[in-house]
Amino acid sequence: MKIVKIYEDSCVYCHLCEVACIVEHSQSKDIIKAFKRETKPIARCSAEFNYPLSYSVMCRHCDDAPCIEACQTGAMHRDERGYVVVNEDKCVGCWMCIMACPYGVIKKDERREVWGLSTKCDLCPDRETPACVEACPNNALMFEEV
């Protein structure tokens, strides 16, 4: 199984992983429209910085995923590719997955009308290589076998 591997020694903290993630998860998949016209989706990865350290972090798709354990509705599940993803219809926004995640990579999307939605990296099901990996200018993110 391939996941996004993080090479912190090469991260230049440019935020382009976040930009690419937002564009990929937008309606139009157009960078200008995604940022300026539409409701901007939440970036599933986040660039973290504490001089001189910096890296981008997103879901590790753990083998023993604590978020799946914690989810009371079964919204957080493992899909046929083996990746941990959220079933939007089942998520009730209780945020237990956020509490359980050891990496802090599940984010709140509170824009849904009735209740919130847990948002996390889905490893871009429509693409061969995730958008963040493709956008990284310095190979700090690589899509590689675990």
Partner: peptide, 13 residues
């Protein structure tokens, strides 16, 4: 400004 999306990549770099 029409193109700038305020991603701040330039600011960090």
């Amino acid at each position: 400004d029409d193109r700038c999306i305020r991603c701040k990549a330039c600011v960090e770099q």
